[in-house]
Design a protein around this nucleic acid. Structure first.
Lengths: 160, 160
DNA sequence: CCAATCTGGTCCTAAATTAGAACTGGATCG
DNA sequence: CGATCCAGTTCTAATTTAGGACCAGATTGG
């Protein structure tokens, strides 16, 4: 007997691991790109749609999900029209360093020295921002091998 | 006439934006969780499979893709058996700060004060690591609104 | 050495998700 | 007021995912 599985996407929410839970919220193909555009000042449905090249149905579903999860909120359009803007909440703005970390990794490992790419700069000086680094509570720089995940209770869904 | 679309997943690779290109490589549902587990010392197929609760077919496909993309590599099993281990390459280890940024955001916004969760600590002192922060080249702390993405040439695929 | 079990996959099927295009209804513009 | 724009919704087809069954080597136990 050979019955097919149920393809319902698994949820990562019930994990003791904040990484898993974060990915449950923003770990799909489009959410972080929408959020990236929101950081760049994109606010309107149509702007997201043409900028990303995403299907309208997907975009509508993602904007709805991100709004329900408190990452975006809708406000009256800033141009005075009857439409609405999608803007980041405080929680959504908290994702800035996730975007920056992705950007720096991409710059380091996915482009050749001459490949054209955008760059994140200090608005005041125009110079590229510094690299992120991990530090101990007392300020010492830490490599990944200097750290470990302290596990909590028993959780069946995630290692860390 | 009403024909359905082709559902082939779009590629983000051809973007001038390092964020988009990074997500093209590790932006799916499972890759970052596999990488997270690899940082925690998981090396064997079966360990990933039972730890993540992922279907074996998906896991095999993801490990293959991550290996092809130079994020993981296979080495002879460390226990001397004829099997092989999956370990992070230098490129893969570069994703550590992405995981840390996701973790810190999750800790801040997805858990209540008493919800049990794992924690990343300095191995030497056992104290939680410091929060990531963004700095200018000269060391000034920067908020997201102090930065901007400087766009490059014309790229039709991504805003930043 | 042989059988049972374990490991690391592949293959198949059903269900869910995605892409793309058509359609719709209200807002705006001329 | 008619044409057009904006922001979706709806529909269909293709792809992806989840979950078992299945299978070939490696390992273990007797």
């Amino acid at each position: 007997m050979r019955i097919g599985g149920v393809a319902k996407r698994v949820s990562l929410w019930d994990a003791g691991c904040p990484v898993a839970r974060a990915l449950d919220v923003i770990g799909d193909w489009w959410s972080l790109l929408i959020i990236r555009d929101a950081f760049d000042g994109v606010r309107r449905f149509g702007e997201f749609q043409t900028g990303l090249g995403i299907a309208k149905g997907m975009l509508a579903a993602r904007l709805r999900a991100l709004t329900e999860r408190g990452i975006l909120e809708t406000v009256p359009a800033s141009d005075g029209s009857a439409y609405k803007d999608y803007v980041l909440t405080e929680k959504g703005r908290g994702l800035f360093l996730v975007i920056v970390a992705l950007r720096q990794w991409g710059e380091d490992h996915l482009y050749g020295p001459r490949d054209p790419r955008s760059s994140l700069v200090d608005r005041e000086t125009g110079a590229p921002v510094a690299r992120l680094d991990l530090r101990a509570a007392d300020g010492r720089r830490l490599a990944w091998s200097d750290t470990e995940v302290r596990k909590v209770a028993r959780s069946r869904t995630g290692g860390s």
